[in-house]
Design a protein around this nucleic acid. Structure first.
Lengths: 343, 343
DNA sequence: AGCGATTCGGAAAACGTTTAATGTCTGCAG
DNA sequence: CTGCAGACATTAAACGTTTTCCGAATCGCT
């Protein structure tokens, strides 16, 4: 009989033979193709069950040239924002019957290139290129390699016709500022990261817009820029508080900066939020563990991830893809450092 | 000509045609099979280059029944220990030419089952089942589905013949305790997590062993068990410090417990490490941000991940796999809470 | 009874590779 | 001149599906 196959490779032929039917018919019942009688259908199903048959998806893909597989290339698998996006990508993919290949490029173009090659060789139906935070822009990867849909997640580029997904940093900047304004704060300091990051620029613009909308004059002395880290936050907060008219609130463009600012304020013996309110940005893991727990602007990482997945899957299904930059809105996480009652 | 193919599907036939040679010959030069003349080899390579041909790995796998692909199913994609293990798995896989499918089961058996089915249907060469911390034991997944090698990572089960990889919690418990003993501490409190976790049991045993090896009597009054969280750490540290003979050091079985303990000690106005030294366990992200930065026992997550990858790949290459529980040693991360000079 | 439409089932050709088998040279030893 | 052993190259059969096409049977009409 068919015992010559390698170990446990039960194929559609085995099923066909057992059910006394042709492989074509078996295929039909598997794929719910009409015009197979109920009786044979049952016979085939029984055979499938008995042999514990599972279709070989590889073979299927070969014929159908559709693998139900997408590739996910990340800059930094251990990046602080990676997991959340990955989680939602995996979720939308798997609920739609897709599997996802995980690739880590370590930010090296050569590795990214290599991963792209194998993904395409493995006939993925689409690819998500994901970054975290730092790297936001770069040349187009070698998309000429194959004509599979691509979406950029948390990064973008203008030289390629591809949808990009990033957080709405401007809106986030406005959101945090508005929150402080609504709590009655009038001199709001802004501690920013390096200005060559688009995120910094956008968050600052948001801050300014919110001030303007509230009829508060923008005071350049109240904004400071440094690195993204705690040390900068510490130093710049000190600078702000040393002003002749120190601020009654500090909005930091990252939670790390905010952590440093908190240190500085504690050092000065100031009460938070009574004397100075503090709002961070990013909703990093540790922000809830600060003293006091930090009110912050959350990056919409889940939403960005699922948007990426959905966009890609639609593109795979043939929907035309435009060169759009999707800016996903940030949300406010109220904790104790701003003075408002927490969520 | 061959323009009838779907868009940009350049196949081995196209190459063959351009190079005026048979597909078989092209295949040979691709796979470095001997007996093809240098001249035709060059001609074929030129054609490949010109057409920008990439072999269709799906088709290849079909014939060779070997996909160079592994599956990774995790309990909890967002688990605190997941990323590090994932990173090293991806690394060893990709350096050996394997791709990895990422699957998240959310700890639900039905999802795990479903993922297993599609992984097997997609003909993966092997599967890693990964957990984090909490779930350590459970029934065997439906391996009868297919005969592909499996390894368990950060979880284990005894009812299946499969290699398991877990941290050496006992060794870690001993390591932290020994470190405190060597720094001269003599009354070391032990704040533990729930005892139904094997990790708790093992860490406690390690603690006891280290004491014994140093000739210090084990005092049951010095060990407390609660939950894994900060709150427990806070309360149990208070209990310990209220003892008639309070400890001069506290070893916590998790960094969360340690964070709570730190709170309690601060509240009591005690200096760390001068009055009480503290050591945590897990090397969580926030442990370096405590006041003072927490000395802790690091879980060997990278090592566990790469071990998992290597074991799986070896098994795929045919090496027989035993039912072994690999306990990977933990390491000591010296920071400021123990009194020793940091690394 | 005749006949088109509908339903069911199978034969065979794909899908893009690899590989075993086979064939054709060329050169060289006897 | 024969025979034989490489060295190259090709043919064709796999791999496990899906899918087109075709034929047979049945059904519902006139």
């Amino acid at each position: 009989m068919s015992r010559k196959r390698s170990a446990n490779a039960v194929t559609i032929h085995d099923v066909a033979q057992l059910a006394e039917v042709s492989p074509a018919t078996v295929s039909k019942v598997i794929n719910d193709v009409p015009y197979v009688s109920e009786q044979t259908r049952q016979r085939v199903l029984a055979a499938i069950d008995k042999l514990n048959y599972r279709p070989n998806v590889i073979a299927r893909s070969l014929r159908k040239s559709h693998t139900a597989t997408i590739g996910l290339i990340t800059d930094d698998l251990e990046g602080v924002f990676t997991m959340a996006m990955m989680r939602s990508i995996e979720e939308v993919a798997s609920t739609q019957g897709f599997s996802v290949f995980l690739c880590n490029s370590y930010g090296e173009m050569s590795r990214e290139r290599a991963h792209l090659e194998v993904l395409l060789a493995k006939q993925v139906s689409g690819i998500i290129l994901m970054s975290g935070y730092k790297v936001r822009e770069r040349g187009a990867p070698a998309l000429e390699l194959g004509r599979v849909p691509v979406v950029y997640l948390y990064q973008y580029t203008t030289d390629v016709d591809v949808p990009c997904i990033i957080p709405d940093d401007l809106g986030g900047g406005a959101l945090g500022t508005r929150h402080l304004l609504e709590l009655g704060r009038r001199r709001i300091g802004f501690v920013n990261g390096p200005l060559h990051f688009e995120a910094s620029q956008q968050r600052l613009i948001g801050y300014q817009q919110a001030l303007r909308n509230h009829g508060i004059a923008f005071d350049p002395a109240l904004v400071r820029t440094g690195k993204w880290n705690e040390q900068s936050g510490y130093e710049l907060a000190h600078e702000l508080m040393a002003l002749p008219q120190p601020p009654d609130a500090i909005f930091c463009a990252s939670d790390s900066l905010a952590a440093g600012a908190l240190d500085a304020l504690h050092e000065l013996g100031l009460r938070i939020p009574q004397d100075v309110a503090v709002v961070g940005f990013d909703n990093r893991y540790f922000s809830g563990y600060q003293r006091p727990p930090l009110t912050t602007i959350a990056l919409p990482l889940y939403e960005m991830g699922s948007l990426a997945g959905e966009l890609l899957l639609k593109a795979i299904q043939g929907e035309p893809t435009h060169r759009v930059i999707h800016r996903v809105p940030c949300t406010l996480i109220k904790r104790l450092s701003c003075g408002a009652p927490p969520d």
